[in-house]
Amino acid sequence: MEKIPILRMGSFLLVTIQVDLYDRLALTLETDLINMVHKTGARGVLIDISAVSIVDSFMGRILGNIASMTRVLDAETVVVGMQPAVAITLIELGLSLSGVYTALDVERGMSLLQTKLGPNDELVDDDADDTE
């Protein structure tokens, strides 16, 4: 079965969605990603949707769910690279993804995660078993 690859970059996970998501693929991604966050103890998740031309309410809900779920696991999710047309459509649809962090591109998403998590990381620096 088709799967969307999840890359590990230090304490962050990066997912680049390159295909049109159908429901099952999106749900698989959700499960895989949450499992991966749990397994690796990642502190942040970057979801790059710059190649995605359509985000409907189902996809939007999945993104929101991923953000809430990772937050429970103490990781923040940043959705990066949303296309202008997709953003306008989502707003018109009534979906503002208020619980999700956003950034223009992966690089900025990464620095956003770093500033969000920065001080926190220093505090738990004593936990030497933190996955690195």
Partner: peptide, 12 residues
């Protein structure tokens, strides 16, 4: 508000 929300979705 719509414009602001759409801007935020883009990450700005």
């Amino acid at each position: 508000i719509k414009t602001v929300s759409a801007t935020r979705l883009m990450g700005a």
